[in-house]
Amino acid sequence: MSRARIARWLIVIPMAALALATVYPLVFTANVASKTRHEYVLDRFSAAESLRWDNFEAAWSSAGMARYFLNSVVVVAAAVALLLLVGSMAGFALSQLRFRGSRALFLGCLAALFIPFQVIMVPLARTMGQTGLIDTYPGLVLAYTAQFLPFTVFLMTSYYTGIPAEIIDAARIDGNSVYGVYRRIMLPLGRPALLSVGILNALFCWNDVLIALLVMPSAEHRTLMVGVTSLRGQYSADIPTFAAGVLIAALPVLLLYLFFQRQITAGVTVGSTKG
């Protein structure tokens, strides 16, 4: 074999191995979730005899995942809707309208992007406690909105900057108010960016555990991710049910990735090549 071909295999084999290592943990978990407890104790690595739904049903109903799932869906949907509304309004104003202080506002928003939640979590929890927002759905929705709004405004502003001013001027001449321009022009034109940033925000909120633990801690308010953390203790002797619960929590995210991979990777690379 020539040296070039050896070098080629030295690259290809580790990359394929890494791809396997990337997929394996989820395959292993799905396999475990299809086993009975007895099968798991005997041999955790062998392939499950058949696809079995018992463990998924147990995790869904008796482990309370159904309730956690609903909590997550409600909070994430509300937070994403609020983020898109507030973020696109601000993005429109900051990119297309001239007003005193717009540059300062944009820079303030960029600065907020670099404040991690861990740095503000203590005073935030205290403020939420004082205003009665702690352990409520609106409280968690607001906390998520505040956390991901700087990123959303940044992305919407940079997207709307690319829309020619002539389009807006023409809409104004046709008799639209500024708000009419937002509703009839900017919202429809912003659809690709809204889709991308909406999906990313949905992922961020769905996957979060720290903010949910802090802002909405009580048992009946648990989001799905907080629920998964408590599942371990409950089902330490029943790993197959535990694995099924983990998969249920991962499923919506896997579906999003399957359908919107392009939007997701586009969103995470914003800001990396220009500046």
Binding site: Q96, R98, S158, Y159, T161, A193, S196, V270, G271, K274
Partner: peptide, 16 residues
């Protein structure tokens, strides 16, 4: 990154 409009970041006060 996304869709067609170029996404260089600038605010309303510059570049118009």
């Amino acid at each position: 990154p996304i869709g067609s409009p170029p996404s260089s970041v600038r605010t309303a006060t510059v570049g118009r």
